[in-house]
Design a protein around this nucleic acid. Sequence first.
DNA 1: ATGACGGTGTGGCACCGA
Length: 265
Amino acid sequence: MRIATWNVNSLTARHDHVLRWLAAQADAGTPVDVLALQELKLTDDKFPFEALRAAGYEAAAFGQKTYNGVALLSRRGAPRDVVRNIPGFADEQSRIIAATLDAPGGPLRVVNGYFVNGQEPGSEKFAYKMKWLQALHDWLRAELAAHPRLVLLGDFNVAPEDRDSYDPEGLRETIHHTTEERTHFRALLALGLVDSFRMFDQPEKSYSWWDYRMLGYQKNRGLRIDHILVSEPLRVAVRACTVDRAPRKWEKPSDHTPVVLDLDA
DNA sequence: ATGACGGTGTGGCACCGA
């Protein structure tokens, strides 16, 4: 069971990359079972359900015009019991889609999030980020109680530790690096979630996002802000978690690249 | 302190992302 997350920075612009990457994974003998997408930047009437079905995936989408938007793709049947955004938290922006998906070891609850960016500490957007993170935390407590086999993944817009940033000193207490954001990240772990990437030895300077500007990717000036967290009952089933940098090298890439979880469940 | 790059929209640039 392979589960991946990818912020595509417009599904319209990255439609071919998504299909190409899924096909490449299948050709390599390691097909992706579930793919969580963020930053679709399109409305649901423009979502490519048919093209994905032809590629073997059923999808649930939650889009909006121009900004945000999330989707879950599954090659093991249609997503069930779909929840859009955080229940009880009024939000104009499409940032969460959760669903139950079939896996060999039983159903999995998958929560896909495009977390708020927050722009700058002290700004209104940062305040929104803090409120959103608190609401997510409070809702996940109940979601975990109802669904012990849970995966939380997506673009968290938080670099959890210094080693998740190319310049932790120079960027100290700037966006993605603030103590407040990192405290929220640890609060999610305290609910009983594990950062699957850090269950394993990883190459130093492993990132999932690189700025388009100033040769960010070529210089490996990146951040690890895309994460896959698993609930405690799933921990023993985790086989690997890796960053696949291949699509970041393709022509007109997203600034994010996929993170992949290999789960024996 | 600013802009660099890229996507979107109904534009002649501005806004947003991270």
